[in-house]
Amino acid sequence: MSDIQTLISQVQQEAQKEEFPIDIPVYKSARLEPTYPVLYAGNLQSPLCFFGRDLGRDEVHARQPLIGAAGKLVRQGFYQAIHQQSAASDQELQTVCDRILLTNTVPYKPPENKAYSTKVKERFRPFIERLLVIHWQGHQIITLGTEAFKWFAPYGEKGEVNNFFLDKERRYETKLAVNLKATDDLGMEYQKIIHLLPLPHPSPLNKTYYAKFPQMLQQRLTQIDF
């Protein structure tokens, strides 16, 4: 197995150790083993990652993060930035995966789309760390929503990530550098500086920002080398 396939297998082994909330009916309808992680989509060599909270129904069926209504808004915005026009088909839209990485705080779908508990997020944190630090070669992450951004709290100075997010005037316009760390199977430690560029989650339920999101995303992408 390749290194990334090993990581996926390790996530599944962890999921099999102890039960946690998974939306079993959705996995059954998708004919996907519920403990199989949908860890990422895209290019591990890409300079940019989009980081969300967890999977939805569409993501389980497609075996890809960020491919439902909100995810397509993200993908369409990135496609627009590259080609200066909208993708005319799902096939065209899928080509953005050649240029970006897509992943989440937890590679599973929670029941009723309720956020996973801190306990579950911490359980899978070491595997997400390995994905981002050891396997992915980029250094820029656009986080989508509050929970995705605050997942990075342990990698900043004490209180730095939360304090950054409290600045409502600037949090969606400025960057924050954090030192992301990971440990491999042999106990070897890795670290790299990551630049976080938070955005609100592009859900239709997010009435404050949903209409503004496409413009906010385009503004963010002007700050990024991709």
Score class of each variant (00 low, 15 high):
Lys109Ala: 12
Lys109Ile: 02
Lys109Glu: 08
Pro110Asn: 13
Pro110Ile: 02
Pro110His: 11
Pro111Lys: 12
Pro111Val: 09
Glu112Ser: 15
Glu112Asp: 15
Glu112Trp: 14
Glu112Arg: 15
Glu112Met: 14
Ala115Phe: 14
Ala115Asp: 12
Tyr116Gly: 05
Ser117Asn: 12
Ser117Ala: 13
Ser117Gly: 06
Thr118Leu: 06
Thr118Ala: 13
Thr118Cys: 03
Thr118Asn: 02
Lys119Phe: 04
Lys119Val: 03
Lys119Gln: 06
Val120Cys: 04
Val120Ser: 05
Lys121Met: 10
Glu122Lys: 13
Glu122Leu: 11
Glu122Thr: 07
Glu122Ser: 11
Arg123Val: 10
Arg123Leu: 05
Phe124Gly: 05
Phe124Lys: 08
Phe124Asn: 04
Arg125Phe: 04
Arg125Lys: 14
Arg125Tyr: 07
Pro126Ser: 00
Pro126Met: 00
Phe127Glu: 06
Ile128Cys: 05
Ile128Gly: 04
Ile128Asn: 05
Glu129Gly: 07
Glu129Thr: 04
Glu129Asp: 13
Glu129Leu: 02
Arg130Glu: 00
Leu131Arg: 01
Leu131Lys: 01
Leu131Met: 00
Leu131Ser: 03
Leu132Gln: 08
Leu132His: 06
Leu132Asn: 04
Leu132Cys: 07
Val133His: 01
Ile134Asp: 00
Ile134Leu: 02
His135Cys: 07
His135Ile: 01
Trp136Pro: 01
Trp136Gln: 00
Trp136Leu: 08
Trp136Phe: 14
Gln137Gly: 11
Gln137Met: 05
Gln137Lys: 15
Gln137Glu: 06
Gly138Asp: 02
His139Lys: 15
His139Glu: 14
His139Asn: 15
His139Trp: 05
Gln140Val: 07
Ile141Glu: 11
Ile142Tyr: 12
Thr143Gly: 07
Thr143Leu: 07
Thr143Asn: 01
Leu144Pro: 05
Leu144Ile: 10
Leu144Asp: 09
Gly145Glu: 05
Gly145Ile: 10
Gly145Tyr: 09
Thr146Asn: 14
Thr146Cys: 10
Thr146Phe: 13
Thr146Val: 12
Glu147Lys: 08
Ala148Arg: 08
Ala148Trp: 06
Ala148Cys: 07
